[in-house]
């Protein structure tokens, strides 16, 4: 199957985690080094969780689940995540 969504799907689930608009952040893939905005990521889900992959190499960059009392976030596939700073 092709990706269910693009990275804009992550805006809602991640709004409880980040204080800034995360879809304009830049994710650097830890696998291939490609820089992508979060909005460009290929997102699969929504259940059991959301999985965002690099549009270049398909490596997993981000996973997020919501359980009964927690949000679980994995960014281990990213070399970095550059977020816009307030007033920047």
């Amino acid at each position: 199957m092709t990706a269910t969504y693009d990275g804009n799907m992550l805006a809602g689930p991640l709004s409880d985690v980040f204080a800034v608009e995360v879809t304009t952040a830049t994710a650097c893939c830890g696998g291939c080094g490609r820089n992508s905005t979060v909005a460009e990521l290929a997102v699969y889900g929504p259940g059991p969780g959301l999985v965002a992959r690099c549009p270049g190499c398909d490596d997993v960059l981000l996973r997020v689940t919501r359980t009964a009392d927690s949000i679980w976030l994995d960014l281990a596939g990213m070399a970095s995540l550059r977020l816009p700073a307030a007033g920047g």
């Binding site: 199957m1 889900g45 059991p48 992959r53 398909d58 997993v60």
Partner: peptide, 8 residues
């Protein structure tokens, strides 16, 4: 239903 974590 088909649920997937990535490309098939």
């Amino acid at each position: 239903p088909v649920l997937s974590t990535g490309p098939t």
